[in-house]
Simulated scan of single mutants.
Amino acid sequence: MELPDGLTSRPLEARDARAVFEVMAAQEMADLGMVEIEEADIVGDWGRPSFDVGDSTVGVFDGDRLVAYAEISGHDRGDAALDPAMRGRGIGTALALWMQDKVRSRGGSVIGMPVPEGSPGDRLLEELGYRVRWTSWVLKLPAGATIVERPLPDGYAVRAAEPAEYPAVHTVAEDAFLEWSEREREPYEDFIAQITGRPGFEPWQLRVVVDGAGEVVGVAHVTLALTEDERPPEAYVARLAVRRDQRHRGLAQALMVDAFAVAREHGAESSCLSTDSRTGALGLYEKVGMEVTSVWVNRAIDL
């Protein structure tokens, strides 16, 4: 990597997750005025059996301090972050070129990454020739607000998933997301590592709707975003999916109501989730009272 004098780079290790979180949090605070990432998100993602931390990451250091990082996750997805105090020195461009080279070396033909719309990262990628693939929104249900419940059809029930149902949860979620997501099917081992292997996981966080025969037909994964001050945690619905043949019965809304309610029972005062333009679900979430708090674009370039 071509870096300014005095800076060095190396592959990262699992022990660097905390430093990566701090850089990402600093960038989000500068760009969004809030921090949406959690250290547990990084630990969970890096814990996937298919993810080789050393071969898929790079860190930029000023002495012993991490000031920037990048990673390649999957065949065409990248992430990067830069300490706002280090902007304007060519580090972001160096990270983008590293990601391009890494994907080329793996036989890939495109690389993209999410950035806050209008942020310095967004402007840099546009200047480098990256196009917008899709837009994403983070939505929040304000503290004290509730989503109107929709009764489940007769015989259906919503509850915590049982461990024996985890493979069925994976099937329902992946089948739903692959209807619009252009990627390979995520192995069960990677899927479950991001859930049960995520620091702080408790069984109540994985929710399901089952039909009269006891089959899993809808799933939701809710986490608690723990803050580092005295503020109550915020609930985040990381996955929400309903089997294709079971849609238009109110199951997704029932899962949201359940996820937010059970998170509130565990101390959360507000709840949020994200969606993107490929799903067509933005209007649904706004209709039930959720409000957009940040807008992201996924920019990509053909290699």
Rank of each mutant, 00 (worst) to 15 (best):
R77I: 07
D83N: 15
A68I: 02
G92F: 09
R65M: 08
L66Y: 10
M86A: 14
D79E: 07
G54P: 09
S73Q: 13
D55V: 02
E71G: 10
L82V: 07
D64H: 03
Y69H: 11
V58N: 05
A81D: 06
G88E: 11
D52W: 00
A94N: 14
S105Y: 12
A68Q: 11
A96F: 07
L66C: 06
V67W: 03
W98T: 06
H75P: 04
G63M: 15
L66A: 10
Q100T: 04
P84F: 10
A68G: 15
R87F: 14
G54D: 03
D101K: 11
D55M: 02
V67L: 12
G90V: 13
S56N: 05
R106G: 04
E71S: 05
Q100G: 14
E71T: 03
E71M: 14
R77E: 07
G78W: 00
H75W: 00
L82E: 02
D79S: 11
D79H: 06
R106S: 03
A80N: 02
V58D: 04
V67A: 14
P84A: 09
R65L: 05
Y69C: 11
T93D: 09
V67P: 08
L66H: 10
D52I: 00
K102F: 05
A94Q: 14
G59H: 02
R87L: 15
D62V: 08
P84N: 07
A70F: 08
R65K: 09
G88A: 13
F61N: 03
L82N: 04
G74S: 01
A81I: 03
E71V: 03
E71F: 03
I72W: 00
D79N: 09
R77K: 00
V58L: 04
G92H: 08
V67H: 11
S73E: 08
A94R: 13
D55P: 01
D101N: 13
V53H: 11
I72V: 05
I72Q: 01
P84S: 10
V53R: 04
Q100H: 02
D62F: 12
R77W: 03
D62W: 05
S105F: 07
A80Q: 06
R87H: 15
G88D: 12
Q100D: 05
S105Q: 07
L66N: 06
